[in-house]
Design a protein around this nucleic acid. Structure first.
Lengths: 119, 119
DNA sequence: TGTCTATATGCATATATAGATATATAGGCA
DNA sequence: TGCCTATATATCTATATATGCATATAGACA
């Protein structure tokens, strides 16, 4: 159970994760820290756009920033974020599977699911 | 590692969770299914607003809908959602604790953290 | 200190969506 | 069938934000 302020904080963190481009950035950093230009090259987006997403993820506490010579490197602040994605991914996959089974049942294709077709 | 389509799906689910009002709806349903008017009363928002949020959560597969006499009841589709919130909540709390410790160290209050203050 | 490179920010545009208000619809029940 | 209640939707306004393009800034190094 979350109090009001915590609910707002949690919602803001979910929001930070609600953009495909930001999820792709996180995935790009899963194997370790990378400088901005590497991320730009990997994700094929504009440098300003990536920079702004990196800033948003930093402000939400999802990334850490450190200068390394001429470059600036970003890294995952808390690997917990990958557990979040994994949980959702499983849930989505499972639900899609159920929906498919339902469709099979309706169309009378009961071979794979074992469900009886509606008449 | 997520492919393109799954990244989009995961992002959409995060987005569905990125509104405080929707998190409050989920919490209201944690103890079991409830009809719309009960949720409206609990959350002190307008009925149309709650209805739209319920629809959004349903479409994202986070809630289930069932008619019960005159009323329509909504319930949690997958309790996994509370694990998500819990993970984020812990992470936020932990990060806030670290930040506090850092501030303590800077201001020379080393009693609790054991860190040395910067001169 | 000046310069050069990597990164960050300002501004404009397009799109999404939360909430308010009014109204439509669904379905139980007489 | 027709009515009544609970819920859903249409429309509007205000706000947020993703992206592109142009430009500013930071900091390493001569």
């Amino acid at each position: 159970m979350l109090n009001g302020a915590m609910t707002e904080r949690v919602a803001r963190r979910f929001r930070a994760l609600s953009e495909p481009m930001r999820l792709r950035i996180l995935q790009a950093l899963e194997s370790g820290e990378k400088p901005v230009n590497d991320i730009v090259a990997l994700l094929e987006s504009s440098q300003p756009n990536i920079s702004r997403h990196l800033k948003a993820l930093c402000q939400e506490g999802l990334l850490e920033r450190r200068r390394k010579g001429l470059k600036v490197c970003y890294s995952i602040a808390d690997p917990m974020v990958f557990r979040l994605c994994d949980l959702i991914c499983r849930s989505v996959t499972e639900q899609t599977r159920s929906q498919l089974a339902e469709l099979d049942a309706i169309s009378g294709n009961s071979r794979r699911t074992g469900h009886r077709a509606r008449r």
